[in-house]
Structure formats: C-alpha cells, structure tokens
C-alpha cells in the first residue's frame, strides 16, 4: 500500500534529525560528520562541569515552571468561560486571547521589548521572559483544557449543587477531578514549550541566558558542538518522557469521563 509506505517515509523524515543526536553525542570526535570516530561519554561529562550551563538550565526551569503554572491557571478560567453561556463579544475576547497562536513569535518579542525597555525602562530578566511565555503558552493550555471541559456534561456540576454542594464545592469535588488529567497535560505542554522557546527568550533575556539562548551561543563554536549534541540528547529524552506522561494523562482523562479517544493534543 503506497500510502502506508509514504507515511513511514514521512516518519523517517520527521525523526531523521533526532535520530542523529545520540549518534553524535556519543561520537569520539569534534566534527559532526560521518564517519564516526568511536564511542565516548566525554561530552556528557563536560556538561556536568560547565557552570554557565547549570545557570542557564536553572533559569529555564524557573521560567518554564512559572509560565506553565500561570498559563494553566489563566487557561482554566478561559476554557471554563468558553463552555459557559455566551455573551455578546465573547468570541472576540477568546479569539484575542488565542491570537498568539497565529502571531509570529518575533512580533510578541519585539512588542514586549519595546514596552519593557523603551517605554518603562525596566531591566530585562527572567520575569520578562515569563510574561511573554505565559502569553504564548495560554492558547495551547486553552486548547488542551477546552478538550477536558468539552467532555464534561454540564449537568454534572448542577447535580452536585442539587445534592447540597456550593458552586465552589461542586467545582472542587466533581469538575476538578474530571479535568485533572487535562490540567496536568496543560502544565506539561506549556512547560515543554517554554523550556524550548528561543526566539522570544533571545530578545528578552537579561544578563543570564536561558538554556536555548545558551545553546545558540555554543553553536558558534565548532569545538562545542559535541557538547550541544549531548545536551540535545538529554533534552529529547526528557521531552519524550514528559510527553508520554502528558498523553497518558489525557487518555486517562478521557476514560474517566467515559469518552472515546478522538485525537491528539491540539
């Protein structure tokens, strides 16, 4: 079947770059090209002894965790409102919140740079990146959480209230457990986006770079490339683990709500 053959070829195209990562990460040579020179774990060792990298990783983690939490909280509000009774202009409001999804990231970066540095005269730092990352993660959170809320029968909460719970009690006891998997996958997805985001971070990072900005710096030094490969290998492994958890949670959520699986994250 030609279509299946094409699909497999396409998957190879998708995975080709990632497959090369570990190969060069363990290659005992500074030039990133075939033929391979032999096996080494030296590049991973170098990662451990580079304080600048550790600093960058720390920055990235702070940014990613904060962005994920804030974006998910805001996303819960928006997604829940999205399922509720409509009012004039609601589509426009939600559309505007979703706008960063189709806005070139450089526009977000530039506009925040102008306001923070030029207009307000504040120094750049991790917080400026967090502000921007929340903005670009929010649409993804809303998309994921919409799925979680949409699978929810509206009369569930009413039933809880009918059985004596307050509005908040109904949300906590019924809605929250049912959308919990969606929340987890929203957190993980924003975390992953933020951790990997470069275009905005490059514009908005202050004196201490985030991990992608640090990697960008390394790419200019050929002798550092194997280290980048080693770092990339770890990141890919980490992403796969996080995404697998996110996907498992999403499926569990569907099962819990008694729904059929219909698709992926978006």
């Amino acid at each position: 079947m030609t279509l299946r053959f094409y699909a497999v070829a396409y998957l190879i195209f998708l995975y080709a770059p990632i497959a090369l990562l570990p190969i060069f990460a363990f290659n005992d040579g500074t030039i990133i090209a075939f033929p391979l020179q032999g096996f080494t774990t030296q590049w991973f060792g170098e990662l451990r002894t580079t304080p600048a990298l550790h600093e960058a990783v720390k920055n990235s983690l702070i940014i990613a965790v904060s962005s994920a939490v804030i974006a998910t909280l805001l996303g819960i509000c928006a997604a829940r409102a999205g399922q509720m009774e409509t009012f004039p202009g609601k589509g426009g409001v939600i559309g505007f919140i979703m706008l960063p999804l189709v806005l070139p990231e450089i526009i977000v970066a530039v506009s925040l740079l102008v306001v923070i540095v030029r207009v307000m005269g504040l120094p750049l730092g991790n917080w400026t990146i967090i502000l921007a990352h929340v903005l670009i993660c929010m649409p993804f959170c809303i998309a994921v959480l919409n799925g979680a809320f949409a699978g929810l029968d509206k009369s569930m909460e009413e039933a809880a209230m009918d059985l004596g719970q307050s509005r908040w009690g109904a949300f906590r006891l019924v809605t929250l457990p049912l959308i919990a998997p969606g929340i987890v996958s929203s957190l993980l997805i924003s975390f992953t986006i933020s951790l990997d985001e470069f275009i905005i971070a490059f514009f908005l990072s202050g004196n201490s770079p985030t991990m992608p900005v640090y990697i960008w710096g390394l790419l200019r030094f050929p002798e550092k490339l194997p280290v980048v490969m080693a770092l990339g290998t770890i990141l890919v492994a980490l992403s796969i683990v996080l995404l697998t958890i996110a996907e498992t949670m999403r499926r569990r959520g569907l099962r819990r709500a008694g729904l059929k699986d219909t698709g992926g994250f978006l």
């Binding site: 998957l11 990632i18 960008w216 996907e247």
Partner: peptide, 22 residues
C-alpha cells in the same frame, strides 16, 4: 498522532542545527 507530534516538542534550535549537519 503522538509519534507525529514528538519531534515537534524537541529542542527547536538543535533540530534546525541538525538539518545543517544532514
């Protein structure tokens, strides 16, 4: 869908750089 999405979530910079290598 999961298989298709995974490469998208891995480091963008490094992916682009690897195309240079390829």
């Amino acid at each position: 869908l999961f298989l298709i999405t995974i490469p998208f979530w891995t480091s963008y910079l490094i992916r682009v750089f690897l195309w240079k290598v390829i």
